[in-house]
Nucleic acid binder design. Structure first.
Length: 211
DNA sequence: GCTGGGATCGCCT
DNA sequence: GGCGATCCCAGCG
């Protein structure tokens, strides 16, 4: 199938993001994140996610709604982009009904289209370094803080179902572990990734279950 | 108004 | 595997 035909596929609909947050985190594995920018189109298969839930001390929305986390309290199916450590940005998909602050962090992608553009944006040729890690993938995809709050149901930023771009749509083994880089809620098994995939940030760490 | 911590990365050894 | 860069914002006063 050509790129044009692939892109004619429909983005994941609102109903996808209305699933409970852990289901969204699991079901995002294997889907394809697309950004149609002025520089060109980049696409990556989602290989690693983390869920951040209501009542979860590691969740940015744990305490209350603020300017920074406000988008998390909005309707599902939107992008939550924030800056971390003053240098990098991370992208989440907002889940849960309006008023409930939950989201899924996208931690890694397998580059599928626009890899030359990704290499230029990242300043490296190494395929595995383009989108492995939340800060890296945001840079490779050309996602900016200005995109905080935009809808994920339409261009320029959206997700195509698993099965696009020759994904192994049937089944792939999924690993469930604790989350990376947090100091609270470290025991919660809210991180998911595709097993044996090279494009994962920290494989096989604190494995609590393999499906 | 000030202070400290944070869902990271790249470079160094 | 360790560490420095670097800045927004929440929390406190």
């Amino acid at each position: 199938m050509t790129l044009d035909l692939q892109l004619s596929m429909s983005p994941l609909p609102l109903q996808f993001y209305q699933q409970d947050t852990l289901s969204v985190a699991r079901n995002l594995l294997g889907t394809c994140l697309v950004h149609e920018s002025a520089e060109g189109t980049t696409i990556g298969r989602i290989t690693e996610t983390e869920a951040y839930l209501w009542g979860d001390p590691a969740c940015h929305a744990y305490r209350r709604k603020t300017n920074r986390n406000g988008v998390m309290f909005g309707p599902p199916g939107h992008a939550y982009v924030y800056q971390i450590y003053g240098l990098h940005h991370c992208v989440n998909v907002v889940t849960a009904p309006e008023g409930v602050g939950e989201a899924v962090l996208i931690r890694s992608l397998q580059p599928l289209e626009g890899t030359l553009l990704m290499q230029r944006r990242r300043g490296t040729d190494k395929l595995t370094d383009l989108c492995r890690g939340p800060g890296r993938l945001v840079q490779a995809m050309g996602i900016s803080k200005a995109m905080n709050g935009i809808s994920l149901l339409e261009s320029p930023l959206f997700v195509l179902p698993a099965g696009a771009f020759g994904s192994p749509v049937p089944v792939f083994p999924m690993v469930t572990t604790t989350r990376i880089g947090i100091t609270q809620g470290t025991d919660l098994p809210y991180r998911f990734y595709i097993r044996d995939n090279r494009y994962v940030s920290f494989p096989v760490k604190n494995i609590s279950g393999v499906k």
